[in-house]
Structures are given as C-alpha cells and as structure tokens.
Nucleic acid binder design. Structure first.
Lengths: 154, 154
DNA sequence: CGGCATCCTGTATGATACTG
DNA sequence: CAGTATCATACAGGATGCCG
C-alpha cells in the first residue's frame, strides 16, 4: 500500500492502523518525558544512577523505574563494573537500539529551537568539519526530502 | 558551552538542564501518544474530526482534547470551510510548526522498524526518485553525522 | 457531523523517608 | 552510591451519554 503525504493528495484506505503501527509502538515503549530525559543524559555521556537523577531533575523513584524499563526494552544495558580497590558499581550504557533513538531526541530539540518560544536553543555541529547539523529526511540518492515528496508504504 | 557526545568523551558541567531545555519543552508540548497519533494522521492527509478519531483509535473525547491542545500550540490550524450547498464544517490543517515535527514522528517509526519486534514496519521513499528515505543527522557540508561525531553547544 | 460533559481507571511523576 | 518504600497528585485515556 502506498501513500503520498501532504495535503491528502493520495490517501490510504480508511482502516485504522492499529497498535502495531511502528509510531504507536515507539510511543508506548519510550514515549514518556522521563524516558526522553534519561536518553538525553545518556547521549551527553551520563552512565550512573545518581547523575541521571540529578541532571534530569527526576526523583530517584522515577529515575529507577525508567532506567529499569529502558533496560528491559533493550535501549540501555546495566553493566556491573569494579574499579581496582573500589566496591562494585553499575553503569547504564546505550545499546545500538538506544543510539538509534538519537534522531528522535534531537529532532525534538530542533523543533523547539525553531518553533517554541519557551525553549533555550541548543546547537548541533559536526565534530569533523564544524558545520551545523540538522535532523532531516534524506533519500538514498542524497536528496533532502520534504513532506510533499515523501511516500509511505507498508 | 560545548559537549562532545558519545561515551563521555567530553562533558558539560554538572548543572541540571532545567525545564527550558528544548527537548524537555517539546516533550511537554507534544509528548503524548495521542498527540503523535493525531500528527501521524495529519501527515497522511486527514483533516476532519471524525477521521482523526476513527483512524487513531482514540475516543472522541481524547481526540477533541488533543486537537484543541495542538491548535493552541500552533501545530494545527482549525479552519472553517463550507462546500456549496453544505453546512459549515471545520478542518484541521498542519502549520509550518506541525510540518517541522515530521522528522520526530518518522524517526520514531524508523526506530521501531529496526529495533522493535512488535512493529509492523512501514517504508519511506522519495517520490522524486523512488529511493528509500531515512531520518538522520546531517551537517551543512552534506556529511551524515553519527553520534560520535556530534557536538552540542548552547 | 463534530463535538463536550461526566465518570472511572491506570500510569507518570513528585515528595519524603529509609536501606544496603 | 544506588537504590526501595510509601503516599499523594495530575493527567492520559477509555466508556458512556448528550447536544447543536
């Protein structure tokens, strides 16, 4: 089935998508404010419980629950580690699945930067060349794809 | 302030980001499942109340509340229209701000496609050339930017 | 058709305190 | 440091019914 997006130029049938729609699945898995804030800190390099709690501003209970859920979903890994002469500790590290959520998180930031007055903007840049970075849709031929040129099939 | 992402190679200071962080702002504005499902349908061309309710599977009450909130946030516009000989109706159309959320919504879909077994994958392609489309970070020089190469400043 | 009002349940999250 | 336990609040969202 194909759909041409934007303005209803072409449309799907009228069946609802149901709960296996990947957008719905993702929202049910990681679509809470606390999960996104925890991910934000993980991208910034945070790995320890206390730091997640302190930097997100979430309570310890919420932090604990969200970390556990993210581990169960395979977005983070909980790994024991022990520095010589120190007691055992745990760290939470991003998995490949967690890395793959980066465009979601920074696309949210980009939207607020450009369309929400309450936000204190952040800027992304490429460490290699210093050029500013945006999150966008691009095709395999290297074309930036705007919504009017986007086709969805399933 | 600069941050080199990934693995804690470089880090910010230890202050929490607070509620003006653009990621947090975006989650508080549109970070609910119902809002994202409504947006999904808007991208598919839906404009009328009943169709939003039917296709998202949300109740009418939830649909009404979410449409109102999205209009208040400037993501959708509520426009009266009247076809000749028909009574007045309303349609909900995406604004530029709503269009700008497209990468968020399809980045969620892309993540589920690749990292969540419960999802029934969808594919995106470029209407112009037919090539598959991905949501990704790219710099102004045209380089695809992976997380290890992403720098954040504020 | 396009909603709004009401009631109800579940979850997200905060506050506070306590533990190994 | 890394949580757990308990209590309380707010909101998301479903179910049902009413209204212009």
């Amino acid at each position: 089935m194909h759909v041409q997006l934007a303005g209803g130029l072409a449309r799907r049938g009228s069946e609802p998508l149901g709960d296996r729609c990947p957008i719905d699945v993702a929202m049910q898995a990681i679509g809470t404010r606390s999960a996104i804030l925890v991910l934000r800190e993980a991208y910034y390099g945070v790995t320890r419980f206390d730091e997640f709690a302190a930097r997100t501003g979430l309570t310890e209970a919420t932090t604990a629950g969200r970390l556990k859920a993210l581990v169960e979903q395979g977005v983070l890994e909980k790994l024991p580690y022990q520095e010589p002469g120190q007691r055992k500790r745990y760290e939470y590290k991003l998995t490949a699945s967690g890395d793959a959520l980066m465009p979601v998180v920074f696309a949210l930031a980009q939207w607020s930067n450009e369309h929400h007055v309450a936000a204190a903007p952040i800027e992304l840049s490429h460490a290699g060349c210093g050029a500013p970075v945006t999150i966008k849709a691009e095709c395999g031929e290297g074309h930036t794809v705007e919504m009017e040129q986007l086709t969805v099939s399933s």
